[in-house]
Design a protein around this nucleic acid. Structure first.
Lengths: 220, 220
DNA sequence: ATTTTTTCTTAAGATTTTCTCAAAATGTGA
DNA sequence: TCACATTTTGAGAAAATCTTAAGAAAAAAT
């Protein structure tokens, strides 16, 4: 199943949008008509649909209701400015969001990211004796809850999501503290120590958070 | 396809940059206008584009979006200092990185190397009884993991990627230690010894890392 | 406003990696 | 084979990097 199905009759707009979304890491299909969209959707499905209302042939409402017939795939309706009727109808049909043309690509990307996050990002990571509830921001080790600070949890999440990779200190630091942080890189190592105390059996001999000399850390 | 396409209207800066990058071993083309860049790009393509934003005629953003239309060639945006808007726009348009003018050539080279590494080099090298995980920076010999130091691993990677070639000591040394290293070339031979101990069946009779008398080494 | 919690800084000490040196071993060409 | 050049090797020194602890600063909660 693809990530995003774009339905848009203007090839230029659709193509550009496709590029942007692919740059964000989504698997995108771009359909230029309602017919094509429904066909592709029936064939393969999609996690989210970005749907222009103004389409030749079957219009956006038609596509929306057909998709809604037997699924609750999130749909973002795109339509010309001030088409209030569109907004009403679209939302009535169960679209998840609505955006006006011409739209700010940033906002659309943010909306999409938000939907993906709410809908598809697993809220729990389980790895060995570690269970991490991302939504509730709680960490369980061997079934018992550990209190963690915000930074610790962010760090752990990032490492869990990049298990097996060597994560250079700079990368970790930039991801968690922001590339423009004023803090010292040493701060990272201090947080690592605290994390180790919480998740390692023997913090003196870390098995999960391994240090890779001269480079950074690797989560196992 | 060339390695790097530089787009920069200042001939002096661009020419200098070209020299530096060619010294790093890249195949570089230097275009002085957006038009020329797009033409050359359409003709031949490039693995990476270093793009100045301020250009006469089609500006950098234009070039960026045109290139992005049907490719995801990595793009590094170069722009005047503190032009946060440029940064935002550039990154929005799908640039992979951003660097401020005046920039440190070393940093740009590092960014480029990073992109090439992430984008165009595979994660795992398998060769005979050796398996090397570049992402995790781990070495397996006959299936069992060997601990390696950073330099050892760098050396081994370089040799694996240049299998069969005679690698002069100076070349190896410059690649791993940097041409401006203060260390003695002897250091290289010490590291070779350590590597041999890790990957050779009989380190006294090396089969993989062969000595080429008076020149350097060759990996078989 | 005060307390509590989190985050950051710092510096000493521990650890690991890297480098240097010189003797021993090996290869090369006359 | 011999003299010479180059490489290998081992041991220890030096340098770099990481860990840790303790206290200061900042942020959040009460």
């Amino acid at each position: 199943m693809m990530d995003i199905l774009i339905v848009e009759d203007n090839e230029e707009i659709g193509g550009l949008l496709q590029d942007f979304l692919e740059a964000e890491g989504y698997d995108v299909y771009f359909a230029t008509s309602g017919e094509e969209a429904l066909e592709v959707y029936a064939e393969e499905g999609a996690k989210l649909v970005v749907l222009d209302i103004m389409l030749p042939g079957i219009d956006g409402f038609g596509v929306c209701s057909r998709i809604r017939e037997n699924s609750n795939t999130p749909i973002i309706i795109v339509s010309a400015k001030n088409a209030k009727e569109d907004k009403l109808n679209g939302l009535m049909l169960g679209a998840d969001d609505y955006i006006e043309k011409p739209y700010d690509i940033d906002i659309l990307i943010a909306k999409i990211a938000g939907i993906f996050k709410r809908r598809y990002s697993s809220d729990e990571i389980v790895d060995g004796n570690i269970r991490l509830d991302k939504i509730g921001r709680r960490l369980y080790v061997d079934g018992t809850e550990m209190t963690t600070t915000s930074k610790e949890l962010d760090l752990l999440i990032y490492m869990l999501e990049n298990k097996g990779k060597v994560l250079p200190k700079e990368e970790l630091f930039n991801k968690i503290w922001g590339f423009d942080s004023e803090s010292e890189i040493q701060t990272l190592t201090v947080h690592m120590k605290w994390l180790r105390e919480k998740i390692e059996k023997d913090p003196k001999k870390p098995e999960r958070i391994q240090t890779v000399w001269g480079v950074g850390y690797r989560f196992e």
